[in-house]
Design a binder for these strands. Structure first.
Lengths: 154, 154
DNA sequence: GCATATCCCATGATATCCCATGTTGTCCCA
DNA sequence: TGGGACAACATGGGATATCATGGGATATGC
């Protein structure tokens, strides 16, 4: 198992009346391997979804910013703001659940059925119904990429 | 044994009532050599089949994506989605079997008789009946390729 | 004191593990 | 070269543990 284990697969879950979601067990194991106390959650700034990740992504992102001049790199502040200021470290309870803040639930338009989507270094949380449309569109784009450069990895 | 051992040959197997399939012993040995806990399974984008592979394929794909910024690379989401979100790591039991999720069985249209097809870095799982037609067509295309580049060594 | 948030326990469903059995292919000996 | 014994593999079913989810009790802060 070289490097960091990727988040893979797509699983469905529920959001209860208290705003709790149960992080899938395989995802919890990956987070635990990164010595992450809970899970970092960030509202995506381009989509109606939440992004989840562990210490590995946060610290590599931080180091990438730290390598640049902190006062004279305009894009730096915007990126730092979009990611760092909006992220929260949510603690997990004994059952592997976290409580999503109300504004996060609103941002992603979450109802009671949600979908966890493994994306490698991060994963996404979608409203299950919203995700169906996004899924079809993404597959179409990926297929177009595949046809453009026949000879991809797979 | 330099590099990675390829999956070769075509063998038939069964899908039982619990959705279990027994990975052929030679394939298991190749997966075990890659330190893969089980086997990664991915529904093919373009065909009614499942694709199986080990850590060698997945981690090379993941590392390629991990080199880029996880939040500011739009194309990353499409590629990660197409492969990583659709793949699952299925654990093997002591007898070398894995449980296929119901949606995978549906995608490939699997009945009780299935066929494992060695394809080098990966292998495919087909419904045996469906594969008969595909096999003939593939041989025809391969022959066309051979005829197209006459002037080869053989 | 009330509202909010955290922790803990109980339950149902699901997936994992384990053992038993039949079959097939391989090896050895006559 | 043929037959028989053995071992490895594949398949079926049942027991067990893990996971996800709901509800309730206890602490905390305003």
């Amino acid at each position: 198992m070289s490097g960091v284990q990727p988040f893979i697969s797509t699983v469905s879950g529920t959001l209860d009346a208290k705003g709790r979601v149960c992080i899938p067990a395989p995802f919890r194991d990956i987070l635990a391997a990164q010595a992450t106390a809970g899970v970092y959650i960030l509202p995506s700034f381009s989509e109606a979804a939440l992004e989840g990740f562990g210490d590995e992504v946060l610290s590599s992102f931080h180091q990438q910013l730290a390598a640049q001049d902190p006062f004279f790199t305009p894009s730096l502040d915007d990126k730092a703001f979009a990611v760092l200021s909006m992220s929260r470290l949510l603690p997990r309870d004994d059952n592997g659940r976290v409580v999503l803040p109300a504004e996060f639930i609103g941002h992603a338009g979450l109802k009671d059925r949600i979908t966890f989507v493994g994306m490698g270094r991060k994963f996404q949380i979608w409203d299950s119904e919203k995700f169906l449309g996004v899924q079809a569109e993404r597959l179409k784009r990926a297929l177009a990429v595949r046809n453009a450069n026949n000879g991809g990895v797979l």
